[in-house]
Design a protein around this nucleic acid. Structure first.
Lengths: 275, 275
DNA sequence: TCGCTGTGTGAACATCCTGTAATCCGTGGG
DNA sequence: CCCACGGATTACAGGATGTTCACACAGCGA
């Protein structure tokens, strides 16, 4: 719903091209889009590509001379999930067909406008991501609590706290804020999706519900902190003894595999707390 | 077998183009490839497209005049899973970028060689299928139930549960999600192929049918779990007492299945598994 | 200290969501 | 032409969730 047309998700792209002028323009544009990119003027060993965890790969086959076809084939074979866009000057229909059949996702002929190249990269990446269902956010843990986006749920000591959707979205937002204080307005805006009416207490009410539920399953931690006149902040802090002890993000509380089935991707990622 | 070099799972393609000469050549080629195809010289209502269950859609925007952009947007919005290849004569970089950003998967400029067009259609379809099918290959077992993609059917204690096509596709999708919660929208999107209309209860209804059938053959397991306000999750959990016991999803039905079916492949298929 | 404003709490109330089942429709076989 | 079957729609009921209120309590400045 949010990203209508542009691939909002910043992409990690590698460009392998010898044309420094073109690369320069492209690089600038990529920077502006906030995409991570690596530019290489020489051929890139396939092994290297594997370890780069790319979201897309733009390559000028001209660089590779006679190794072009075997190289392309090897890339598409070993990294079937990697979007490959060939960007080369001068080519025949036969070559393009061959490249595409070998597994390239698109074939752009230079000279071409960088914007079009980028749009094509987006198009391919979009299509790939579309199926890449798993790609949810990562789990976050703090204190005894683990928040799992893939489950739309939070867990404590391995069992589900029964958060409703709104409750979940609220904690998720707060937790993702990484220890920062969020104003009510902003919270409302982002969880409810529209502007908060004056006097609306919804956020407060939900914070209360959350505190209550957390309390029940993890009574010696405080998770949501009120900042008078401002808003709320999420951070796991030990309850009883006085001082603040911002173990905030600590995952040290061993979190057992929740009741939930093995989520392959759900490696709990610690919060980075900083006041 | 028939095709030497193409990625050729026969594809069902619709071509919407006014250029009869081009279409004729293309048609001939498609025939030879054994692809099902429908050719339309006029504009095609989006609703029609929906019911056609296409594998790809080639369209000449020139046919649509000023309705081109809204049309394209509507197609890509309502059928996000449908590969769309725009094939039009004369276009500016800006137009191509716009089209691609609106969701087109490729943009080919006429005149073009039909072979290249076909190769591009294949490339897009391949990319799309890569994700859809990647996980579909292997059988999954959970509780007493075994889902066999190769049979388009699920089994319990070795005998077929009589799932209809839709029912099967639904469980398969859920089971392949590996314990993750899937939102209704996404489910509908992926099983029905187009965007869910507001208020559509189809998913619920089919979930009910599935539960009912599972219940009949394996009454002491619960397979499909409702996540209020979100969607559904597939995981085999023992029925009786309240506690959760996630011998869940796609994983080895280890503890499970006293009378359980084979499930020889303990290897839980990963979505990222490469074919 | 007083008083104002902001926040915690609990409950009542209004809505929305889901389970369930019946009905309607189009397709294909007999 | 009728029937069986899968699938799409719709109606209804009960429960879950979200929203709103009134009141008690806590922070903060005069």
């Amino acid at each position: 719903m949010t990203d209508t047309n542009s691939a909002a998700a910043p992409l990690r792209v590698a460009v392998s091209d010898g044309d420094s002028g073109f690369v320069q323009v492209l690089t600038k544009r990529l920077d502006r889009l906030g995409w991570e990119h690596v530019v290489m003027t020489g051929a890139v060993p396939v092994d290297r590509l594997v370890s780069m965890r790319l979201g897309a790969f733009v390559v000028d086959l001209a660089l590779l001379g006679s190794h072009a076809w075997p190289y392309l084939e090897r890339v598409t074979t070993e990294l079937p999930a990697l979007p490959v866009i060939v960007c080369t000057g001068q080519s025949t229909v036969a070559q393009r067909v061959r490249g595409l059949r070998l597994g390239a996702d698109d074939w752009v002929t230079k000279p071409c406008h960088p914007e079009e190249l980028i749009a094509r990269v987006e198009a391919v990446a979009r299509r790939r991501r579309h199926a890449d269902t798993a790609s949810a956010a990562e789990a976050v843990a703090a204190g005894d609590i683990e928040i799992r986006p893939d489950q739309f749920q939070a867990f404590a000591h391995g069992r589900s706290i029964d958060l409703t959707r709104r409750e979940f979205e609220l904690v998720q937002l707060l937790a993702a804020a990484d220890g920062r204080v969020l104003e009510r307005e902003e919270i409302y805006q982002r969880v409810w999706g529209y502007t908060m009416a004056h006097g609306d207490r919804s956020v407060d009410v939900f914070v209360r519900k959350l505190r209550s539920k957390f309390q029940q399953v993890s009574s010696d931690w405080n998770y949501i902190h009120t900042h008078f006149g401002v808003g709320y902040r999420f951070a796991a802090e030990r309850a009883l003894d006085g001082a603040s002890e911002p173990v905030a993000a600590g995952t040290e509380a061993g979190i057992a595999a929740p009741t939930a089935p093995s989520a392959p991707d759900a490696a709990p990622k610690s919060l980075h707390a900083f006041a």
